[in-house]
């Protein structure tokens, strides 16, 4: 039943996304979009000692894409880079605590892809 995915927590994070906007200082930035849906998420990371010490996101998308990004930023703060690079679709589903159809799964993964892309960019610089 797909209505189940629109639980309070997802609607709440969609309507009031956490860590939305830009970092106070310039960080490592990566953008990913999903051309099928028009989801477009940019992650901004401040990384110190292989840890994410601050994080923001911005962009547009459906409730699943925005809520996933919001929940992911909450989780990622103060996490080690190695923890974040090993996250996969199951970790995202766990964060969202829902089941998603293959089509909507893509929406949930846009933010993770952006986060991991930013970490990769950062890695290349050190």
């Amino acid at each position: 039943m797909s209505l189940d995915i629109y639980k309070e927590i997802i609607l709440d994070h969609y309507k009031h996304p956490r860590n939305f906007g830009h970092l106070p200082r310039e960080g490592t930035v990566a953008q990913v979009n999903n051309p099928l849906c028009g989801d477009d998420i940019t992650m901004e990371l401040e990384i110190t000692n292989n840890k994410v010490v601050d994080i923001r996101f911005h962009g547009q998308g459906c409730a699943i894409a925005i809520a996933s990004a919001s929940l992911l930023t909450e989780f990622a703060k103060n996490q080690k880079l190695t923890t974040l690079t090993t996250m996969n679709k199951d970790s995202m589903l766990e964060l969202l605590s829902v089941e998603l159809s293959p089509n909507r799964l893509k929406c949930a993964l846009v933010s993770l892809e952006a986060l991991q892309k930013a970490i990769k960019t950062h890695g290349l610089h050190t």
Binding site: S2, L3, I5, Y6, G61, C62
Partner: peptide, 21 residues
């Protein structure tokens, strides 16, 4: 509101509409 969310919710009521560009 995002069309993909709306189409997904309508699908639960067996209503087929298209969302996108």
């Amino acid at each position: 509101s995002h069309p993909h969310d709306l189409a997904d919710i309508l699908n639960a009521d067996h209503i087929c509409v298209r969302a996108g560009h």
